[in-house]
Nucleic acid binder design. Structure first.
Lengths: 119, 119
DNA sequence: GTCTACGCCTAGGCTTTCTAGGTATGAGCC
DNA sequence: GGCTCATACCTAGAAAGCCTAGGCGTAGAC
């Protein structure tokens, strides 16, 4: 449903969730599903690589934990990760506003740009 | 600035512009730049392949025109293209709303999901 | 004669996401 | 004991989309 649209936004969404506190991969998937009202139901194969990517970039740090006999890798925002999260959100607002302007604009057309179509 | 975020949204934006009337590639780039307040300044290498893609999908139809000694390929929305344009916009609204929900939600955290970090 | 704006095009590479698998624990059920 | 489900991690490879970096050509200004 929204697979194609995720491009370039996953990292920002993950960082946004981590602003609320540390989380592990599986829980992050649930958090995104819950927060989005079920709209984002991301496969593990998307989220785990994204987390590894963010860790390589220094935006999150991870540590192992054990809960109920199951090991978890818990991710926490770093200082630069927090800055990145805020920047991503402001970029999103700009992007979203720009898209809305394009959608809203009802033509803006001079009407004469097309010329005569010959075939 | 917004290169990564375009993924999956370009087609919808192009279709949105074409709702206002036929346009050619070069003019479409200008229209997107103008309508978005300069935010979308797309390279030709993005827009022309997108138009060809849309034409292959049957969402737009093209015809050649000549204006001032310069040839233009003018693109027009087909019937299914118009439907697709509207659908894209409604999908955008859903997507945008879901992103906003994720950004707005201030934790929603139980706080106890992380467990004790051991290393 | 050169430069800029207009106007079209494509090949190749990069990045990101998804598909489709794999491993392992704990709990509930028969 | 076996089965299944939810939890929890991981990766290789394919698929797709956009950008970079070029190419071609006309018209008009300087």
């Amino acid at each position: 449903m929204s697979q194609e649209m995720m491009r370039g936004h996953l990292d920002g969404l993950v960082l946004a969730v981590l602003i609320g506190g540390p989380a592990h991969g599986y829980g992050l998937i649930e958090a995104l599903r819950d927060r989005s009202g079920g709209f984002f139901d991301l496969p593990e194969g998307s989220v785990y690589p994204a987390l590894h990517r963010l860790e390589r970039s220094g935006l999150v740090a991870s540590g192992w934990s054990e809960v109920g006999g199951r090991r978890r890798r818990v991710y926490t925002l770093t200082a630069s990760g927090r800055r990145a999260a805020e920047q991503r959100q402001s970029e999103w607002r700009s992007f979203s506003a720009a898209v809305e302007r394009v959608f809203a604009n009802p033509g803006s057309g001079q009407g004469g740009t097309a010329g005569a179509v010959t075939s």
